[in-house]
């Protein structure tokens, strides 16, 4: 479907019909400019094929109808922003703060994630192509993707409900939210709805969600749950009062079934 609808004019790695120079020199307009990677105005930090990246972007952004930031680096600065937070940023945001390469640019759509899921990208482009309604959240991310939380569809949900911690890595049982840094309940993405590579996800193979679609990715101490007085943060949009009362109550019960192996072959 993608290849029938879209024509890739240039891609730096893939065998495509036009070179970057061709695109820079032409007067023709393009529908989409796709940006990967964190941005900088400094020529020393970022240049491409002998041009400063700032110049490339200035030229290309004017030709494009939409600017798609593919991934968390292009959206927020991501990992590489940490090298120089003053000079490296995303297209519209520097971490959480508004103001990246541009302060305002209504053409920009962020598809954050490290990596971004290919379906998020393709579906967004298709919507724009067909003129279907595309609502964006406060970080200019498509709501259809980023209104979900990674927690939705996680196979370990029942362990979260009953506050049963994962005892060790490499087991099917237990929730990774309490001790192992899982950010699933506060990370916006539909990973566990559409799955990765159509078959799995981080939490399905017993690793934590590291919040890679959020502006603060990567947090410090990714494999630890940040707690205050041993209390984890509440899930996204749920008040501490609601969460702690429920959690405190649930923790008070010992649910025998959830303490056992999921597949108990000896019984």
């Amino acid at each position: 479907m993608f290849s029938k609808v879209f024509k890739i004019l240039h891609h730096p790695q893939i065998n495509t019909p036009y070179s970057l120079e061709d695109i820079l020199k032409t007067d023709a307009k393009v529908d989409f400019l796709v940006i990967e990677g964190a941005l900088s105005r400094s020529e020393k930090i970022l240049s491409r094929f002998g041009y400063s990246f700032k110049d490339i972007l200035d030229i290309l952004s004017k030709k494009a109808k939409y600017i798609i930031c593919a991934g968390s680096c292009a959206s927020f600065g991501g990992i590489f922003r940490l090298q120089n937070e003053a000079k490296i940023f995303g297209a519209l945001f520097s971490g959480k703060e508004k103001g990246g390469f541009w302060f305002n640019n209504s053409k920009v759509i962020n598809i954050s994630g490290c990596p971004m899921h290919p379906r998020w990208f393709v579906e967004t482009l298709l919507k724009l192509h067909y003129g279907d309604k595309l609502s964006l959240d406060e970080y200019r991310r498509p709501k259809e993707v980023y209104s979900y939380l990674v927690h939705h569809g996680c196979l370990r949900n029942e362990y979260f409900e009953w506050k049963v911690d994962c005892k060790d890595y490499g087991e099917k049982e237990g929730c990774l939210f309490y001790e192992h840094g899982c950010q699933g309940p506060m990370t916006h993405a539909n990973c566990n709805k559409i799955l990765w590579n159509s078959v799995s996800s981080k939490t399905r193979v017993g690793s934590a969600c590291f919040g890679c679609t959020e502006f603060d990715f990567p947090r410090l101490a990714l494999y630890e749950t940040k707690k205050h007085m041993s209390l984890p943060s509440a899930p996204y949009g749920i008040s501490k009062r609601a969460y702690y009362s429920l959690a405190g109550v649930a923790k008070g019960f010992k649910i025998e079934r959830l303490e056992k192996r999921l597949i108990d072959e000896n019984n």
Partner: peptide, 21 residues
């Protein structure tokens, strides 16, 4: 069991401590 009947009080203490830290 556990905190079931004292949840409203303990929850407020949790909020107080979490916030302070």
């Amino acid at each position: 069991e556990g905190m079931v009947c004292v949840a409203s009080f303990v929850t407020e203490m949790m909020i107080f401590f979490e916030d302070g830290v």
